[in-house]
Amino acid sequence: MFAYLVRRLLQFIPVLIGVTFLVFSLTLLLPGDPVASLLGLSEGQAQVDAEMVQRYRHELGLDQPVPVQYGMWLGRAVRGDFGDSIKTRRPVADEILPRLKVTAQVSVAALIVSLLIALPAGVAGAVWRNSWLDRLITMLAVAAVAVPSFWLAIMMILLFAVQWQVLPPSGFVSPFDDPVRGLKLMVMPVLILGWEGAAVLTRQTRSAMLEVLSQDYVRTARAKGLAGRRVIWVHALKNAMLPIITILGLRIGLLLGGSAIVETIFTIPGIGRLLVSSISTRDFPVIQALVLVIGLSTVVASLLTDIAYALLDPRIRYR
């Protein structure tokens, strides 16, 4: 196990360097003078303030060769220094951290919703294979992937907030501060973020369960007289969980991507909405830092998934 961990961590280093370099290189792709973009100046202003632009260029090392620039940028990033937001003039890190907490709350809730829908649905589909229930579940899963999440959000607002007025249309209060209102506000965003994940996970659970249910040890468990329910939920599902865990790891990144849409619609003050609003105000330092945070979360999630996988399945370790 230790050797596997070391190997996996070593593989992680080039990916880490690559991810940070890719985010850094966004600066190089910026049209016009990157310093002007980083300071939020227009071309004309940059010409007027030529001296200041020059000073910043030197301070940020943008007059150095690209590898040196990258090194300096990485050095600052490691210390959490991403510069100041153009819009608020506050340090980027101070803008991001409180919003990260909000996104984390919504994402975790969405993951739980996904699992609560997908596990029973997937198991039912596999156990009663080709029944009407299985067909219905499969059909819903296929349709769910094709529904644009922002449209689903709009339709839910139309029904629950405009027509029936049972839920507030948008906003966010932490459920830890005001449980009733906080949870009411979270129902729609969490259902929408969880719904898409549920569709993918249901298909995965179903096919993993089908695979496992045909194994000899399941037949043995049945033959020795164990109750059907115990065989399915303990013997089979435990083994079917492996591929499901992989999908769960991948979901983390997708949830952060989906949060851009859902947080914008429901005006939730998370990193997704911050990313979208920063793009429209061309707040480049914030965009860059957010893309880095999202990229790193995805990479770390996939590393943790691999480690969890290896802990659960000894075959991986000795490969």
């Binding site: 910026l30 990144g253 995805t298």
Partner: peptide
Amino acid sequence: EIQIAFPGLIFALALVST
């Protein structure tokens, strides 16, 4: 693998915004 670290939507968002 490095590119996959960024969810498709975020990758496209970052690229278009730049």
